[in-house]
Design a protein around this nucleic acid. Structure first.
Lengths: 245, 245
DNA sequence: CATTTTCCTGACCATTTAGTCCAGGTTTTT
DNA sequence: AAAAACCTGGACTAAATGGTCAGGAAAATG
């Protein structure tokens, strides 16, 4: 939440409101080009990692001369840093808090669905993050040590309370979070593999829905939970056979 | 830099039977150095990807001069290729077949456990594979198209038979395989993240056992399955509370 | 308008990298 | 002991890469 990786020139006045439109016209170009560079960088870094990506290739993708890229970001590392500043903020914003009084089934289902949706809408971000972690998180280590550890601790405490209250099966909360994390992340990170296995060219919305349904069904049932009738996520289970279990 | 890579599997240079001892003595050194180079390469490639890895760094890790590395593998790509040749073979060997007459619970539990175990014993391999997939599997594409697609198809057919026979809940078999794949793979690929979250320096055997127990419990239950009494994998569930579900 | 600020870029540089070549060396096999 | 296989330091090349910089173009400002 408040945790933001630094870098990223902070407020960077967006010319959004009509009042500031005139006063803050300076920087418009800067903003636009920054975005283009970061978008290109996300693509490249997520594909080849930090070392494997050249500034030149980012520049080409952004359709700018290399000099111009280095005018905005004085070196490669700064681009990388800036990217993660954006990313972690976006993630924190997307994943809502859970509270002890929430319904466990609904809360977990929502978590799963949001995460799958993020795999769909931001696959590059997901892969970039994965790359960074696989490489030992040299850059994110600090952030993870504070931000994410807190994040996980908070959620697992709530889950533990659900368990203590007998509202779900007693499973290790941290492991549960990891399970949801990995299984959802997978749809973005291992897209290539999945597409090959399923013999498809691309994912469509339906595929993600199907995946989310499946994960919700299995994981919730695995936690001794069931979605309230009519809730989203029960579609994966064939009602004919479902009652047998 | 005194630390060098263990030759790992050792099947190569070991004079196994007296009969082959004489005939295949030539090439012993070749074999040994090949192994060393490949082990070093696996480490480096899994850390920085293909582009991000230099031949020099591989040579240093293998404690050999660069000339020697290039004497064995005339270019970088050949090292990378050779690695995957080894890897896919090892994987296929490790993951046993499943048959319709097997017990679903036991078979899935075994699959999960083997896969977690592979995350423990071959984390580098796992990460290397992950990297390759994230990058779109430029090299593995062909293999995946034949080998892995077949592999998945075979397993999912068996799972489907289990479902049709009413021996487990009706879930999408392919999705189930993906779920097991991702959740187990995760312990190797995202090791850095997990260690940070759990505030540990390294994994120990116990951690992997715990993870395997958890996954077995949740996924099996998610499939409407239960391990026969006394089987491995039930330990994660507190028996006090277990009966409530 | 003139001037100041912001933006842009081609040319340039030092370093790294993959890969070649090879002559002379060592070790192993026969 | 000869032959075959293996090893290696170093010198070299051609391409690439990260990064610098001076000076010019465009835009904002007064």
């Amino acid at each position: 939440m408040t945790n933001q990786i630094k870098s990223e020139d902070g407020q960077a006045g967006r010319p959004s409101s009509p009042s500031t439109l005139q006063t803050k016209r300076t920087g418009r170009i800067r903003e636009r080009n920054r975005e283009r560079i970061l978008a290109a960088a996300e693509e490249k870094f997520s594909l080849h990692g930090f070392r494997g990506t050249t500034v030149q290739s980012i520049a080409e993708r952004a359709d700018l001369p290399k000099s111009n890229v280095l005018y905005y970001f004085s070196n490669k590392k700064l681009i990388y840093y800036a990217l993660f500043g954006d990313i972690m903020g976006r993630w924190n914003a997307a994943l809502s808090e859970i509270k002890p009084e929430d319904d466990p089934a609904l809360a977990l289902a929502s978590f799963i669905r949001t995460k799958v949706e993020m795999s769909r809408t931001h696959p590059l971000t997901s892969r970039l993050f994965a790359m960074e972690i696989i490489q030992g998180a040299p850059l994110l280590k600090d952030y993870l040590c504070t931000g994410m550890r807190e994040w996980v601790r908070g959620r697992s405490e709530v889950i533990q309370q659900w368990i203590d209250a007998g509202r779900m099966a007693p499973v290790d909360p941290v492991q549960l979070i990891l399970l949801i994390w990995s299984s959802t992340q997978h749809y973005a990170d291992f897209q290539a593999q999945i597409l090959i296995i399923e013999d498809k060219e691309t994912y469509v919305q339906k595929d993600f829905d199907h995946a989310a349904d499946f994960l919700t069904t299995v994981i919730l049932r695995g936690c001794g939970l069931e979605l309230p009738q009519g809730s989203n996520g029960a579609a994966a289970l064939d009602p004919e056979r479902a009652e047998a279990f």
